[in-house]
Deep mutational scan, measured.
Amino acid sequence: RNLTILSLPEDVLFHILKWLSVEDILAVRAVHSQLKDLVDNHASVWACASFQE
């Protein structure tokens, strides 16, 4: 069985995303439609995003 980041529970993905910069979140968003939906549909992803580079 192949395990990917998409195999992780949504709460784990949120925990990972909250540590990323805006640039990295946008890069993750571009990788897969499921990740794009996760980022686009949950404001909590952006609430913790680091807007300082």
Rank of each mutant, 00 (worst) to 15 (best):
R1P: 12
N2V: 12
N2G: 13
N2W: 01
N2P: 11
L3K: 08
L3R: 11
L3E: 03
T4Y: 01
T4I: 01
T4Q: 07
T4K: 05
I5L: 14
L6M: 06
L6E: 01
L6A: 01
S7C: 09
S7Q: 10
S7I: 07
L8V: 00
P9S: 04
P9F: 05
P9A: 02
P9E: 04
E10H: 11
E10G: 05
D11R: 12
D11F: 02
D11H: 08
D11P: 12
V12C: 09
V12H: 03
L13D: 04
L13C: 00
L13Q: 12
L13E: 02
L13V: 11
F14V: 15
F14S: 11
I16F: 00
L17M: 13
L17S: 01
L17N: 00
K18T: 10
K18G: 12
W19G: 10
W19E: 15
W19C: 15
W19A: 08
L20M: 07
L20N: 03
L20P: 01
L20S: 03
L20H: 02
S21N: 11
V22A: 11
V22L: 14
D24L: 03
I25L: 09
L26Y: 08
L26N: 06
A27S: 13
A27I: 09
V28C: 11
V28Y: 00
V28N: 00
V28E: 02
V28G: 03
R29K: 02
R29I: 02
A30M: 15
A30E: 13
A30D: 02
A30K: 09
V31S: 15
V31C: 13
H32Q: 06
H32F: 02
H32M: 00
S33W: 07
S33I: 01
S33V: 06
S33A: 04
Q34N: 07
Q34K: 15
Q34F: 08
L35C: 04
L35I: 11
L35F: 11
K36W: 05
D37Y: 08
D37T: 14
D37R: 15
D37P: 00
L38Y: 11
L38W: 10
L38H: 12
V39L: 09
V39F: 02
D40Q: 06
N41C: 10
H42R: 11
H42T: 06
A43P: 13
A43K: 12
S44N: 14
S44G: 14
V45T: 15
V45D: 15
W46S: 09
W46G: 13
W46Q: 11
C48F: 08
C48P: 15
A49M: 06
A49H: 12
S50A: 14
S50K: 13
F51C: 07
F51S: 10
F51P: 11
Q52F: 10
E53V: 06
E53D: 11
